[in-house]
Write a protein that binds this DNA or RNA. Sequence first.
DNA 1: AAATACATTCAACACTGTGTTAATTAAAGA
DNA 2: TCTTTAATTAACACAGTGTTGAATGTATTT
Lengths: 199, 199
Amino acid sequence: MASIHEEMVQKTKTQIQYHFIALVEEDGFSQVSVKKIAERANINRGTFYLHYVDKYELMDHLQQQLLNELQARITAILPKEVFMALHQQQLYPPFVAIFQFISEHAHALRAILGDKGDPSFAKKVKRVFGEVLLERLISQHPAAKDEEFLKYMNAFMTSAILGVIQEWLENCEEQSVEEMAKIHFQILKFISQLRTFIE
Amino acid sequence: MASIHEEMVQKTKTQIQYHFIALVEEDGFSQVSVKKIAERANINRGTFYLHYVDKYELMDHLQQQLLNELQARITAILPKEVFMALHQQQLYPPFVAIFQFISEHAHALRAILGDKGDPSFAKKVKRVFGEVLLERLISQHPAAKDEEFLKYMNAFMTSAILGVIQEWLENCEEQSVEEMAKIHFQILKFISQLRTFIE
DNA sequence: AAATACATTCAACACTGTGTTAATTAAAGA
DNA sequence: TCTTTAATTAACACAGTGTTGAATGTATTT
């Protein structure tokens, strides 16, 4: 399992990934070249090509890892429990777990979801949110029968959630994981009370 | 004002911009090269450099144009009138005007706000929405005193609005301008009634 | 008609990054 | 000691970049 050669490969790959993330966070993906990655990671440029086809494959690999882990955490959310937690004024642990995960991978996520990041990844994240969360949530509402409306409602809510995460990442996690879970809770509360302005 | 030379310059610039948008929409900004633009626009590669420093300057120019026009239309929105329109179950003309504008510039906006687009432009659009709309809207709410909360609430709402626009662009404007204004109206309605699930 | 002004063209230039290859080095295991 | 294999090194053709200087075409001016 852990032959010396396999360990060498893993160590090199980890080096590449670490410095790749740093570079993307600094200059944006488009400005990152294989040459720069190799220089920063103190490896030969040729070595990079032993492990990855190009910088795009490396990015894909990183994104897939993050997406899988995120999906697992999002799947743990149960809308009914969300409503119960909201009603009882208490934090919902799966939400905390998600913010925890984001915090742990802040550099990578900031690199990919930030200003100079990859919009297609943002879209994938939205899809995960949408599949797991909103199908169940909105389907309870009478207006949910309108498929057209559902599509845009889905875009609205998933974009909103992602927007909050992006804002947090941009502020370099000034707010703690617990604070974010609380803010998230407040926002849900606030939205649910917007009607007071309309009626 | 309209010397022959100035006309030539304008015609060439228009050609460059048109084909640049088409190329970005097809392949994404990162895949677009000055060479491709020149080939597509039937001009010499050198001619491009007579008008723009590089493809980045061209992109900046395009973005600034769109952003200015969008800002003008967003500024016309008055939150009070939005609530009135919502209450009276009628469409709010400034919203229709914005969807109209988006529809007119669908190709450029899809290129910039789409999958292979530029996240920094999305951020700029959000800022415009935020400055004009939400400062006035949220400041009326008691919780608005919490600056931290306000920041994330702002991110939530502006991202949500932009998300709906991106979804529309992605569907190649299957829904008409009027339908979109209506859907937008429905979403606001829906959100304002979410509390029924919580209490 | 000739002179001019100016947008565009064309060919050539050095430069940077890419992806590949073949020969070489270094370190661990049999 | 011999083998295996990751990593190195240097060289290669190739793509696109940004720049330059001379040439071309067209419209206005004298």
